[in-house]
């Protein structure tokens, strides 16, 4: 991308005109490149005076109580010392489906769908072998954090959409449940902390509604071979319409 077209894209992101996939891409670039981050910040600062032109409205009286209620459980992992965290427990994934509905799936649906289309199209064009299923993994706030594309042989491409807050002595582990009522199975580790392609043998071909999730585990992966750590993101797969 030329500098000039990148600056244009940055301006469009600041205005809210860019596609979600472009926003994710530029934000990922900014995370790695202080120069791009600075250009993004400068562009935002140029338009920021418009925020001050909005009316100052009155918040409802109980507003702080509403916010505070949401903070419970939202405390940032990055700021909790590892030893202060609850001891690792095996997570019961049976509640995940119920939880998904609470996780503002609907509110985020548009963005997730757009991301899914844009990113999967990119991958599909570059890779003749098409994925059997695609899942957008959402975090607790309903933000898309990863895109999972899995082929019939369970070769699974995991594209991170947000820089994950993983402590240095921990690793991201990718899981799926090949059978809805069966145990979760590890697809592998994102040992480099980056997007990666994982391969595994002996699993049935992935199907729609199959659960995928990424958890934070001790170095080398979960000691129990079941997810034990906090969930970074999870989502149910869909078969792409091709």
């Amino acid at each position: 991308m030329t500098d000039r077209s990148l600056d244009m894209l940055i301006d469009e992101i600041v205005l809210g005109l860019a596609e979600p996939a472009d926003v994710a891409r530029v934000e990922a670039m900014a995370a790695d490149d202080p120069d791009i981050a600075a250009r993004l910040d400068r562009a935002r600062a140029r338009f920021a005076p418009l925020d001050d032109t909005a009316d100052e409205l009155e918040l409802p009286e109980d507003f702080w109580a509403r916010v505070e209620r949401d903070l419970d459980g939202a405390d940032s992992l990055a700021d909790t010392p590892a030893e202060a965290r609850a001891p690792a427990e095996v997570i019961d994934l049976s509640g995940v489906r119920r939880a998904m509905t609470r996780w503002r799936g609907a509110a985020i649906g548009g963005l997730a769908a757009a991301l899914l289309l844009a990113v999967s199209l990119g991958w599909t064009l570059m890779n003749p072998a098409q994925p059997a299923v695609i899942a957008v993994l959402l975090n607790e706030q309903g933000e898309a954090v990863a895109l999972v594309e899995s082929r019939p042989d369970n070769t699974t491409r995991v594209t991170l959409l947000e820089q994950a807050d993983v402590p240095p002595d921990r690793v991201m582990q990718v899981w799926t449940k090949p059978e809805d009522d069966g145990p979760p199975v590890s697809l592998g580790l994102l040992a480099r902390g980056l997007s990666d392609t994982l391969t595994i043998e002996g699993l049935p071909a992935p199907h729609a509604q199959q659960l995928y999730e990424i958890t934070v585990e001790p170095e080398g992966g979960s000691p129990t071979n079941l997810p034990t750590g906090p969930i970074l993101g999870k989502g149910l797969a869909k078969a792409p319409v091709i």
Partner: peptide, 27 residues
Amino acid sequence: QDAVQEALVLVWRKAHQFDAQRGSAKG
């Protein structure tokens, strides 16, 4: 109101990512 509520919770969660060297906190 939903948007402001969600934004404040995100501010809380992401506060550790804010880098004062990079730009205005308000922005």
